[in-house]
């Protein structure tokens, strides 16, 4: 009875989470949904007399694999959302048809079989003195070769990931000497003037005033200035507004 309740609750949760995984636009939500499914499955493993697998599921999947997913998501851009508009004609329709058809076929096949009452793993585990001991017995005796191969696979995968993610520098990293030389060869040996931050605007998009009272265009951060011009957030002072516009123009000419 307890198992039935657990199953139905977790079945509903996991199917809903799986659908959420397929349907959510943001990849991070997908990752979270996947985590929910994996957690539910871990519980179901535990219910089905597989405590070791349940632990491994939590540790490997929800622990390692999910972290890896999230890590890559952060690298690729966490705030990116997918467009859900299908670009390949008929792909979505036929994918759903095939998916439903496949599920129906499997369900039909399973439904056709009359299962006797499950044997249960009591006999198998008690023979070795527990689930973990039983698995260990199998891994290190009958399946030891597969186990070794799997370990080789893991090492290879780790190496492969290193090789793939590694990026060669095209040229040597500039030293301090190189940087200083580049700076004195350029138009501004001294640091550029900082932005003029006034009391009214605690923002660094304000141009600075030089000692003679004129506005310094060099002090304007050009990327911010471009946003300001695009969104019309220019200061009321026409001299400052003009300086920002000038900075944008210079920026565009230099492109």
């Amino acid at each position: 009875m307890g198992e039935t309740i657990t199953f139905w609750v977790l079945a509903v949760v996991s199917v809903a989470a799986a659908l959420g995984l397929v349907l959510s636009r943001k990849a991070v939500y997908c990752a979270l949904m996947l985590g929910v499914v994996m957690g539910s499955l871990a519980v179901l493993y535990a219910v089905q007399e597989a405590p070791f697998l349940a632990a491994v599921q939590i540790i490997v999947y929800t622990g390692a694999v999910m972290m890896l997913f999230l890590f890559v998501l952060m690298l690729v851009g966490v705030d990116s959302t997918d467009s859900l508009v299908e670009t390949i004609k008929g792909q979505r329709f036929w994918a759903i048809v095939a998916g439903l058809g496949f599920a129906a076929l499997l369900a039909l096949a399973i439904g056709n079989v009359a299962f006797v009452r499950p044997t249960g793993l009591g006999g198998a585990t008690s023979q070795y003195g527990g689930n973990v001991q039983g698995l260990a017995q199998l891994i290190f005796t009958r399946h030891v070769f597969a186990f070794e191969v799997a370990s080789a696979l893991l090492i290879t995968a780790a190496l492969a990931a290193m090789v793939l993610a590694h990026r060669e520098r095209a040229k040597a990293k500039p030293t301090q000497k190189d940087l200083a030389r580049a700076r004195f060869a350029g138009p501004h040996p001294t640091p550029l003037p900082g932005p003029g931050v006034y009391a009214r605007h605690n923002a660094n998009d304000m141009p600075a005033l030089l000692p003679d009272g004129t506005v310094s265009e060099l002090s304007v951060n050009r990327i911010i200035a471009r946003h300001d011009v695009q969104e019309g957030r220019l200061p009321e002072d026409p001299r400052l507004a003009e300086a920002i516009r000038q900075a944008v123009e210079v920026e565009e000419e230099s492109k």
Binding site: V15, A18, L21, F69, S83, A95, G99, A103
Partner: peptide, 19 residues
């Protein structure tokens, strides 16, 4: 079977490689 089918459909309809 349901989870497997949902996963398969997901592979077919999503475009983000990570998803």
């Amino acid at each position: 079977a349901l989870l497997f089918a949902i996963g398969a459909v997901g592979v077919l309809v999503r475009r983000n490689a990570i998803v």
